[in-house]
Write a protein that binds this DNA or RNA. Structure first.
Lengths: 195, 195
DNA sequence: TTTCCAATTGAACATTTGTTCAGTTAAGTG
DNA sequence: CACTTAACTGAACAAATGTTCAATTGGAAA
Protein backbone atom coordinates (compact mmCIF):
# COMPACT_ATOMS: atom_id res chain seq x y z
CA UNK A 1 0.00 0.00 0.00
CA UNK A 2 2.89 2.33 -0.65
CA UNK A 3 2.29 5.92 -1.69
CA UNK A 4 -1.50 5.90 -1.75
CA UNK A 5 -1.90 9.32 -3.36
CA UNK A 6 0.66 11.85 -4.48
CA UNK A 7 4.25 12.09 -3.40
CA UNK A 8 4.53 12.02 0.38
CA UNK A 9 8.13 12.72 1.19
CA UNK A 10 7.56 16.42 1.66
CA UNK A 11 4.65 15.71 3.98
CA UNK A 12 5.87 12.68 5.88
CA UNK A 13 9.27 14.19 6.64
CA UNK A 14 8.04 17.17 8.66
CA UNK A 15 5.22 15.10 10.13
CA UNK A 16 7.74 12.72 11.63
CA UNK A 17 9.67 15.53 13.30
CA UNK A 18 6.47 17.15 14.56
CA UNK A 19 5.10 13.93 15.94
CA UNK A 20 8.39 12.92 17.51
CA UNK A 21 8.67 16.35 19.12
CA UNK A 22 5.24 16.11 20.64
CA UNK A 23 5.68 12.57 21.91
CA UNK A 24 9.16 13.16 23.30
CA UNK A 25 8.03 16.33 25.05
CA UNK A 26 5.22 14.32 26.62
CA UNK A 27 6.98 11.12 27.62
CA UNK A 28 10.70 11.68 27.24
CA UNK A 29 13.14 10.53 24.59
CA UNK A 30 13.88 7.06 25.95
CA UNK A 31 10.23 6.37 26.70
CA UNK A 32 9.08 6.95 23.12
CA UNK A 33 9.61 4.15 20.59
CA UNK A 34 10.07 4.44 16.88
CA UNK A 35 6.95 2.34 16.42
CA UNK A 36 4.98 4.81 18.52
CA UNK A 37 6.11 7.72 16.37
CA UNK A 38 5.45 5.78 13.17
CA UNK A 39 2.01 4.79 14.35
CA UNK A 40 0.95 8.39 15.00
CA UNK A 41 2.35 9.47 11.64
CA UNK A 42 0.31 6.67 10.06
CA UNK A 43 3.21 4.69 8.74
CA UNK A 44 5.26 1.60 9.60
CA UNK A 45 8.40 1.91 11.73
CA UNK A 46 10.67 1.02 8.83
CA UNK A 47 9.50 4.03 6.84
CA UNK A 48 10.98 6.41 9.39
CA UNK A 49 14.43 5.39 8.26
CA UNK A 50 13.87 7.06 4.91
CA UNK A 51 13.96 10.33 6.80
CA UNK A 52 16.38 9.81 9.66
CA UNK A 53 19.44 7.58 9.96
CA UNK A 54 18.53 6.70 13.55
CA UNK A 55 16.57 7.75 16.62
CA UNK A 56 19.40 9.86 17.98
CA UNK A 57 19.43 12.04 14.85
CA UNK A 58 15.72 12.60 15.27
CA UNK A 59 16.36 14.16 18.67
CA UNK A 60 19.39 16.08 17.48
CA UNK A 61 17.61 17.47 14.42
CA UNK A 62 14.68 18.85 16.40
CA UNK A 63 16.96 20.46 18.97
CA UNK A 64 19.26 21.95 16.36
CA UNK A 65 16.31 23.27 14.41
CA UNK A 66 14.91 24.88 17.54
CA UNK A 67 18.19 26.53 18.47
CA UNK A 68 18.80 27.66 14.88
CA UNK A 69 15.34 29.22 14.76
CA UNK A 70 16.00 30.91 18.08
CA UNK A 71 19.33 32.39 17.02
CA UNK A 72 17.95 33.46 13.64
CA UNK A 73 14.98 35.17 15.27
CA UNK A 74 17.27 36.86 17.75
CA UNK A 75 19.32 38.33 14.92
CA UNK A 76 16.18 40.02 13.65
CA UNK A 77 15.60 41.77 16.95
CA UNK A 78 16.52 45.41 16.99
CA UNK A 79 19.30 45.54 19.54
CA UNK A 80 20.42 49.12 19.02
CA UNK A 81 20.08 51.82 21.61
CA UNK A 82 20.98 51.86 25.28
CA UNK A 83 21.31 48.77 27.45
CA UNK A 84 17.97 49.21 29.18
CA UNK A 85 16.18 49.29 25.85
CA UNK A 86 18.12 46.27 24.63
CA UNK A 87 17.38 44.32 27.77
CA UNK A 88 13.68 44.99 27.39
CA UNK A 89 13.82 43.91 23.76
CA UNK A 90 15.65 40.72 24.71
CA UNK A 91 13.26 39.92 27.54
CA UNK A 92 10.16 40.39 25.43
CA UNK A 93 11.72 38.51 22.55
CA UNK A 94 12.57 35.54 24.75
CA UNK A 95 9.04 35.31 26.08
CA UNK A 96 7.38 35.77 22.70
CA UNK A 97 9.61 33.22 21.06
CA UNK A 98 9.37 30.52 23.71
CA UNK A 99 5.77 30.70 24.87
CA UNK A 100 4.26 29.42 21.60
CA UNK A 101 6.79 26.55 21.54
CA UNK A 102 6.36 24.69 24.82
CA UNK A 103 7.31 21.31 23.35
CA UNK A 104 10.54 22.58 21.82
CA UNK A 105 11.49 24.27 25.07
CA UNK A 106 10.74 21.15 27.04
CA UNK A 107 12.75 18.87 24.80
CA UNK A 108 15.64 21.27 24.35
CA UNK A 109 16.10 21.72 28.07
CA UNK A 110 15.28 18.21 29.27
CA UNK A 111 16.83 15.87 26.74
CA UNK A 112 20.33 17.28 26.59
CA UNK A 113 21.65 14.23 28.41
CA UNK A 114 20.25 11.95 25.73
CA UNK A 115 22.35 13.56 23.02
CA UNK A 116 25.51 11.82 21.93
CA UNK A 117 28.62 13.73 23.08
CA UNK A 118 29.27 15.13 19.60
CA UNK A 119 25.68 16.28 19.18
CA UNK A 120 25.65 17.71 22.69
CA UNK A 121 28.63 19.90 21.88
CA UNK A 122 26.83 21.39 18.89
CA UNK A 123 23.71 22.27 20.87
CA UNK A 124 25.71 23.51 23.82
CA UNK A 125 27.60 25.86 21.55
CA UNK A 126 24.39 27.33 20.17
CA UNK A 127 23.02 27.76 23.66
CA UNK A 128 26.23 29.50 24.59
CA UNK A 129 25.81 31.91 21.68
CA UNK A 130 22.38 32.81 22.96
CA UNK A 131 23.66 33.41 26.46
CA UNK A 132 26.46 35.56 25.09
CA UNK A 133 23.94 37.88 23.46
CA UNK A 134 22.32 38.57 26.81
CA UNK A 135 25.61 38.88 28.62
CA UNK A 136 26.77 41.49 26.12
CA UNK A 137 23.75 43.59 27.01
CA UNK A 138 24.48 43.27 30.72
CA UNK A 139 28.11 44.23 30.19
CA UNK A 140 27.10 47.27 28.19
CA UNK A 141 24.66 48.31 30.89
CA UNK A 142 27.39 47.87 33.46
CA UNK A 143 29.67 50.13 31.40
CA UNK A 144 26.91 52.69 30.97
CA UNK A 145 26.24 52.68 34.68
CA UNK A 146 22.63 51.66 34.06
CA UNK A 147 23.03 48.19 35.53
CA UNK A 148 24.76 46.88 38.60
CA UNK A 149 25.38 43.16 38.67
CA UNK A 150 28.07 41.48 40.69
CA UNK A 151 28.71 38.87 37.98
CA UNK A 152 27.39 39.21 34.45
CA UNK A 153 27.77 35.50 33.66
CA UNK A 154 25.78 34.40 36.67
CA UNK A 155 23.20 37.12 36.13
CA UNK A 156 22.82 35.99 32.52
CA UNK A 157 22.07 32.43 33.50
CA UNK A 158 19.80 33.55 36.31
CA UNK A 159 17.71 35.69 33.99
CA UNK A 160 17.46 33.02 31.32
CA UNK A 161 16.48 30.42 33.91
CA UNK A 162 13.81 32.75 35.24
CA UNK A 163 12.41 33.45 31.78
CA UNK A 164 12.54 29.87 30.60
CA UNK A 165 10.87 28.62 33.76
CA UNK A 166 7.82 30.47 32.55
CA UNK A 167 7.32 27.87 29.83
CA UNK A 168 6.94 25.16 32.46
CA UNK A 169 3.76 26.52 33.97
CA UNK A 170 2.25 28.86 31.37
CA UNK A 171 -1.03 27.71 29.87
CA UNK A 172 -2.80 29.47 27.02
CA UNK A 173 -6.11 29.38 28.83
CA UNK A 174 -4.58 30.59 32.08
CA UNK A 175 -5.27 33.61 34.22
CA UNK A 176 -2.82 35.90 32.41
CA UNK A 177 -2.31 36.69 28.75
CA UNK A 178 1.08 37.11 27.12
CA UNK A 179 1.08 40.89 27.39
CA UNK A 180 0.44 40.75 31.11
CA UNK A 181 3.14 38.14 31.59
CA UNK A 182 5.62 40.13 29.56
CA UNK A 183 4.98 43.15 31.75
CA UNK A 184 5.45 41.19 34.97
CA UNK A 185 8.66 39.53 33.86
CA UNK A 186 10.12 42.67 32.39
CA UNK A 187 9.52 44.37 35.71
CA UNK A 188 11.34 41.60 37.57
CA UNK A 189 14.24 41.49 35.13
CA UNK A 190 14.67 45.23 34.93
CA UNK A 191 14.80 45.69 38.68
CA UNK A 192 17.02 42.68 39.33
CA UNK A 193 19.94 44.20 37.42
CA UNK A 194 19.19 47.87 38.06
CA UNK A 195 21.93 50.08 39.40
CA UNK B 1 25.69 -17.11 47.46
CA UNK B 2 22.99 -15.28 49.38
CA UNK B 3 23.90 -13.07 52.31
CA UNK B 4 27.63 -13.50 52.18
CA UNK B 5 28.31 -11.76 55.50
CA UNK B 6 25.92 -10.24 57.99
CA UNK B 7 22.42 -9.01 57.35
CA UNK B 8 22.28 -6.73 54.34
CA UNK B 9 18.77 -5.37 54.26
CA UNK B 10 19.72 -2.18 56.07
CA UNK B 11 22.61 -1.63 53.68
CA UNK B 12 21.16 -2.78 50.39
CA UNK B 13 17.93 -0.80 50.80
CA UNK B 14 19.50 2.66 50.91
CA UNK B 15 22.17 1.65 48.41
CA UNK B 16 19.49 0.86 45.88
CA UNK B 17 17.88 4.28 46.23
CA UNK B 18 21.25 6.03 46.10
CA UNK B 19 22.36 4.15 43.02
CA UNK B 20 19.04 4.57 41.26
CA UNK B 21 19.11 8.29 42.00
CA UNK B 22 22.57 8.71 40.54
CA UNK B 23 21.83 6.67 37.43
CA UNK B 24 18.46 8.28 36.76
CA UNK B 25 19.93 11.75 37.18
CA UNK B 26 22.57 10.81 34.64
CA UNK B 27 20.57 9.01 31.99
CA UNK B 28 16.88 9.56 32.76
CA UNK B 29 14.28 7.28 34.28
CA UNK B 30 13.27 5.38 31.17
CA UNK B 31 16.86 4.94 30.03
CA UNK B 32 17.96 3.19 33.23
CA UNK B 33 17.14 -0.50 33.62
CA UNK B 34 16.58 -2.45 36.80
CA UNK B 35 19.50 -4.67 35.84
CA UNK B 36 21.74 -1.63 35.54
CA UNK B 37 20.80 -0.47 39.02
CA UNK B 38 21.20 -3.97 40.43
CA UNK B 39 24.58 -4.37 38.80
CA UNK B 40 25.96 -1.21 40.39
CA UNK B 41 24.56 -2.21 43.77
CA UNK B 42 26.29 -5.56 43.35
CA UNK B 43 23.19 -7.68 43.30
CA UNK B 44 20.92 -9.47 40.82
CA UNK B 45 17.88 -7.68 39.41
CA UNK B 46 15.43 -9.90 41.27
CA UNK B 47 16.83 -8.79 44.63
CA UNK B 48 15.64 -5.23 44.03
CA UNK B 49 12.07 -6.40 44.41
CA UNK B 50 12.65 -7.09 48.09
CA UNK B 51 12.93 -3.33 48.51
CA UNK B 52 10.56 -1.86 45.97
CA UNK B 53 7.33 -3.19 44.49
CA UNK B 54 8.30 -1.83 41.05
CA UNK B 55 10.41 0.65 39.15
CA UNK B 56 7.81 3.40 39.42
CA UNK B 57 7.91 3.27 43.23
CA UNK B 58 11.66 3.66 43.10
CA UNK B 59 11.24 6.97 41.31
CA UNK B 60 8.38 8.08 43.49
CA UNK B 61 10.20 7.22 46.72
CA UNK B 62 13.27 9.23 45.87
CA UNK B 63 11.23 12.24 44.81
CA UNK B 64 9.00 12.10 47.86
CA UNK B 65 12.01 11.74 50.13
CA UNK B 66 13.64 14.74 48.50
CA UNK B 67 10.55 16.91 48.84
CA UNK B 68 9.94 15.76 52.41
CA UNK B 69 13.52 16.61 53.34
CA UNK B 70 13.12 19.99 51.68
CA UNK B 71 9.91 20.85 53.52
CA UNK B 72 11.28 19.59 56.83
CA UNK B 73 14.44 21.65 56.44
CA UNK B 74 12.38 24.69 55.51
CA UNK B 75 10.39 24.37 58.74
CA UNK B 76 13.65 24.68 60.67
CA UNK B 77 14.46 27.99 59.00
CA UNK B 78 13.88 31.02 61.17
CA UNK B 79 11.20 32.88 59.29
CA UNK B 80 10.37 35.54 61.84
CA UNK B 81 11.07 39.19 61.34
CA UNK B 82 10.28 41.48 58.44
CA UNK B 83 9.73 40.34 54.88
CA UNK B 84 13.15 41.40 53.65
CA UNK B 85 14.85 39.32 56.32
CA UNK B 86 12.61 36.36 55.57
CA UNK B 87 13.27 36.59 51.85
CA UNK B 88 16.99 36.58 52.46
CA UNK B 89 16.64 33.56 54.75
CA UNK B 90 14.57 31.75 52.16
CA UNK B 91 16.95 32.56 49.32
CA UNK B 92 20.02 31.41 51.20
CA UNK B 93 18.22 28.34 52.45
CA UNK B 94 17.16 27.35 48.95
CA UNK B 95 20.69 27.61 47.63
CA UNK B 96 22.29 25.85 50.59
CA UNK B 97 19.78 23.03 50.47
CA UNK B 98 19.84 22.42 46.73
CA UNK B 99 23.48 22.93 45.77
CA UNK B 100 24.78 19.84 47.58
CA UNK B 101 22.00 17.72 46.04
CA UNK B 102 22.35 18.13 42.27
CA UNK B 103 21.05 14.64 41.49
CA UNK B 104 17.91 15.04 43.58
CA UNK B 105 17.22 18.42 41.99
CA UNK B 106 17.72 17.02 38.53
CA UNK B 107 15.45 14.05 39.04
CA UNK B 108 12.77 15.97 40.92
CA UNK B 109 12.46 18.58 38.20
CA UNK B 110 13.00 16.40 35.13
CA UNK B 111 11.18 13.17 35.83
CA UNK B 112 7.81 14.53 36.89
CA UNK B 113 6.26 13.28 33.66
CA UNK B 114 7.37 9.74 34.44
CA UNK B 115 5.36 9.62 37.64
CA UNK B 116 2.03 7.86 37.59
CA UNK B 117 -0.85 10.34 37.89
CA UNK B 118 -1.49 9.47 41.54
CA UNK B 119 2.17 9.83 42.45
CA UNK B 120 2.44 13.04 40.47
CA UNK B 121 -0.34 14.57 42.52
CA UNK B 122 1.50 13.84 45.75
CA UNK B 123 4.75 15.43 44.58
CA UNK B 124 2.95 18.35 42.98
CA UNK B 125 1.20 19.06 46.27
CA UNK B 126 4.51 19.14 48.14
CA UNK B 127 6.01 21.42 45.54
CA UNK B 128 3.00 23.66 45.92
CA UNK B 129 3.56 23.82 49.68
CA UNK B 130 7.10 24.99 49.08
CA UNK B 131 5.97 27.66 46.64
CA UNK B 132 3.34 28.82 49.11
CA UNK B 133 6.02 29.48 51.72
CA UNK B 134 7.79 31.88 49.38
CA UNK B 135 4.60 33.51 48.21
CA UNK B 136 3.59 34.21 51.82
CA UNK B 137 6.82 36.15 52.23
CA UNK B 138 6.19 38.15 49.08
CA UNK B 139 2.65 38.92 50.21
CA UNK B 140 3.87 40.09 53.57
CA UNK B 141 6.48 42.31 51.92
CA UNK B 142 3.78 43.72 49.69
CA UNK B 143 1.65 44.52 52.75
CA UNK B 144 4.63 46.06 54.52
CA UNK B 145 5.42 48.18 51.50
CA UNK B 146 8.90 46.68 51.30
CA UNK B 147 8.21 44.81 48.08
CA UNK B 148 6.47 45.74 44.90
CA UNK B 149 5.52 42.84 42.65
CA UNK B 150 2.76 42.94 40.10
CA UNK B 151 1.78 39.33 40.75
CA UNK B 152 3.02 37.38 43.77
CA UNK B 153 2.29 33.97 42.21
CA UNK B 154 4.26 34.69 39.07
CA UNK B 155 7.07 36.31 41.04
CA UNK B 156 7.22 33.24 43.28
CA UNK B 157 7.68 30.91 40.35
CA UNK B 158 10.12 33.26 38.67
CA UNK B 159 12.32 33.41 41.75
CA UNK B 160 12.25 29.67 42.32
CA UNK B 161 13.07 29.02 38.67
CA UNK B 162 15.97 31.44 38.89
CA UNK B 163 17.34 29.84 42.05
CA UNK B 164 16.84 26.27 40.89
CA UNK B 165 18.47 26.97 37.55
CA UNK B 166 21.63 27.47 39.54
CA UNK B 167 21.83 23.74 40.16
CA UNK B 168 22.05 23.09 36.44
CA UNK B 169 25.39 24.77 35.93
CA UNK B 170 27.02 25.00 39.35
CA UNK B 171 30.15 22.87 39.78
CA UNK B 172 31.98 22.44 43.06
CA UNK B 173 35.31 23.14 41.45
CA UNK B 174 33.98 26.16 39.59
CA UNK B 175 35.01 29.79 39.64
CA UNK B 176 32.73 30.77 42.53
CA UNK B 177 32.20 29.28 45.96
CA UNK B 178 28.81 28.96 47.63
CA UNK B 179 29.16 32.14 49.66
CA UNK B 180 29.88 34.19 46.54
CA UNK B 181 26.97 32.62 44.71
CA UNK B 182 24.62 33.24 47.59
CA UNK B 183 25.60 36.88 47.60
CA UNK B 184 25.07 37.28 43.86
CA UNK B 185 21.68 35.59 43.85
CA UNK B 186 20.48 37.36 46.95
CA UNK B 187 21.33 40.63 45.26
CA UNK B 188 19.32 39.68 42.17
CA UNK B 189 16.35 38.41 44.17
CA UNK B 190 16.26 41.33 46.56
CA UNK B 191 16.27 43.94 43.82
CA UNK B 192 13.81 42.10 41.58
CA UNK B 193 10.98 42.46 44.11
CA UNK B 194 12.10 45.70 45.73
CA UNK B 195 9.60 48.53 46.04
C1' DT C 1 24.16 -28.65 66.55
C1' DT C 2 20.02 -28.13 64.51
C1' DT C 3 16.53 -25.22 62.87
C1' DC C 4 14.79 -21.17 60.78
C1' DC C 5 14.22 -17.60 57.70
C1' DA C 6 15.98 -13.15 55.76
C1' DA C 7 18.49 -12.28 51.70
C1' DT C 8 19.71 -13.34 47.30
C1' DT C 9 20.41 -16.04 42.99
C1' DG C 10 19.51 -17.41 38.44
C1' DA C 11 16.58 -18.79 35.21
C1' DA C 12 12.45 -17.99 32.96
C1' DC C 13 8.34 -15.17 31.01
C1' DA C 14 6.18 -12.43 27.51
C1' DT C 15 7.00 -7.88 25.44
C1' DT C 16 9.30 -4.47 23.44
C1' DT C 17 13.31 -2.29 21.58
C1' DG C 18 16.11 -0.02 17.31
C1' DT C 19 17.26 -1.26 12.96
C1' DT C 20 17.62 -3.75 8.38
C1' DC C 21 15.95 -5.12 3.99
C1' DA C 22 13.81 -7.79 0.24
C1' DG C 23 9.61 -7.12 -1.70
C1' DT C 24 5.35 -4.36 -3.07
C1' DT C 25 2.77 -0.49 -4.56
C1' DA C 26 1.51 3.31 -7.32
C1' DA C 27 2.68 8.03 -8.90
C1' DG C 28 5.37 10.22 -12.32
C1' DT C 29 7.96 9.94 -16.93
C1' DG C 30 8.62 9.20 -21.77
C1' DC D 1 1.02 2.42 -22.99
C1' DA D 2 5.36 0.57 -20.54
C1' DC D 3 8.85 1.72 -17.32
C1' DT D 4 11.22 3.73 -13.49
C1' DT D 5 11.71 4.64 -8.96
C1' DA D 6 10.21 7.13 -4.64
C1' DA D 7 7.71 5.60 -0.79
C1' DC D 8 6.39 2.26 2.04
C1' DT D 9 5.27 -2.50 4.00
C1' DG D 10 5.89 -6.39 6.79
C1' DA D 11 8.63 -9.63 8.49
C1' DA D 12 12.73 -10.61 10.70
C1' DC D 13 16.87 -9.91 13.97
C1' DA D 14 19.29 -10.10 18.34
C1' DA D 15 19.21 -7.71 22.41
C1' DA D 16 17.06 -5.75 26.25
C1' DT D 17 12.97 -4.77 29.10
C1' DG D 18 10.21 -5.25 33.97
C1' DT D 19 8.81 -8.70 36.80
C1' DT D 20 8.12 -13.38 39.04
C1' DC D 21 9.55 -17.25 41.71
C1' DA D 22 11.42 -21.80 43.08
C1' DA D 23 15.76 -22.87 44.85
C1' DT D 24 19.82 -21.78 47.57
C1' DT D 25 22.73 -19.68 50.91
C1' DG D 26 24.46 -18.70 55.39
C1' DG D 27 23.97 -15.84 59.69
C1' DA D 28 21.26 -15.97 63.88
C1' DA D 29 18.34 -18.19 67.28
C1' DA D 30 17.15 -22.36 69.88
Amino acid sequence: MARKQGSHSDITGPRILDTALRLIAQHGFAAVSMRQIASEVGVQAGALYNYTPDKQSLLFDMMREHMADLLAALRDVDLRGDALYQLEAFTRFHIRFHLPRPDQVFVSYMELRNLSPANFDVIERMRRDYEDALEAILRQGEAEGTFSVADTRVATRAIIAMLTGLSHWYREDGRLDIAAIEAIYWDLVRKSVAA
